[in-house]
Every structure is written in structure tokens, then in C-alpha cells.
Amino acid sequence: AETCTNDTESRIISDDLAALEQRKLSVLPTQRRKIYAMSRFEDKSIADISSELNLSHRTVENHLRIGRHEIREYIRQCI
């Protein structure tokens, strides 16, 4: 029973964190949102993203760094 309760609780927490991530992602600037989503949900590398979006490697790195920071801070404030 203890393991089942822990699994259920972990799943609920995971779902809540994913919902917070999606909420913050939806308000990021378009370019940053696109880059973050490609990296996080499509497992694309910075090189792949920069090639696909025709952006410099450094621009993609900066958008990704800022996006991760903003989402991390938002989640931190919510918990």
C-alpha cells in the first residue's frame, strides 16, 4: 500500500509540475517558446534548432538559457 501511495503522489506532483511548465511556456515570447519546446519536447540539439530556424548557434543558446531560467523561476515561486 505504501508503494502505491508513493507512486500516485509522485505522479500527481509530476503532472502538477508539467502543468506549471506548460503554463509558463505559453506566455514566453514566440521565438523562445519555439526553441524551448524543440529542445525539451522534441529532443533537438542546439545545432539542429539553429539550422531548422536559420538562427545562429549563440542565439539559440541564449533563448534556451533564458527560457529555462524563466520556467525554473516560475516553478520555484509556485512551490
Rank of each mutant, 00 (worst) to 15 (best):
I13L: 14
N62Y: 11
T3I: 12
L28V: 03
L17C: 11
L17D: 10
E61D: 08
D7P: 04
H57Y: 15
I46D: 09
A47Y: 06
Y36K: 05
F41G: 03
T3A: 07
N6S: 11
Q77F: 00
V60Y: 02
L20S: 04
A1Y: 07
N54L: 02
R11D: 10
N54I: 00
F41Y: 14
I49L: 01
H57R: 14
H57W: 12
V27T: 02
R23D: 03
A1I: 09
I35C: 04
I13C: 06
E42M: 09
E70S: 07
V27L: 00
E21V: 05
E52M: 03
I66N: 00
R40P: 02
S14R: 14
H63P: 04
E52R: 05
S45V: 01
D16Y: 10
R23V: 02
Y36E: 06
N6E: 09
N54K: 01
K34D: 10
I71N: 02
R76D: 05
D48R: 10
D7L: 15
I49K: 01
S14Q: 12
E52S: 13
S45A: 06
K44C: 15
L55F: 12
T59E: 04
K24V: 00
I46Y: 08
L25S: 04
E42Y: 07
H69N: 04
D7F: 13
A1W: 05
E21Y: 02
S50M: 06
R76W: 01
S26P: 00
H69F: 06
R68M: 03
E61G: 05
R11C: 13
Q22F: 04
H69C: 11
R11K: 14
D7K: 15
H57D: 15
I12R: 12
Y36P: 05
L25A: 04
A18V: 11
H63L: 06
R68I: 03
T3V: 09
R32K: 15
S56W: 10
Q77M: 01
S10Q: 13
A19F: 08
H63N: 11
E9V: 12
R68L: 08
I12V: 09
I71E: 01
S51M: 09
S56T: 15
K44A: 12
T8C: 10
E21A: 02
K34M: 10
L53Q: 13
Y74Q: 02
R58P: 06
E61C: 13
I66C: 00
S56K: 09
E42K: 10
D43N: 15
L53I: 00
K34I: 14
R58T: 11
S39D: 09
S10V: 11
D15P: 03
I13R: 13
K34P: 04
S39W: 08
L53K: 03
S26R: 04
R76C: 06
R33V: 05
P29K: 05
A47E: 13
D43E: 14
C4T: 09
S14A: 11
E73V: 13
R68Q: 07
D16A: 10
I75D: 00
E73K: 13
A18N: 09
N6K: 15
D15G: 06
T3R: 07
I12G: 05
R65S: 12
E61M: 12
T59Y: 07
E61W: 13
I35V: 05
A37V: 02
R72H: 12
C4N: 07
S50W: 07
Q77T: 13
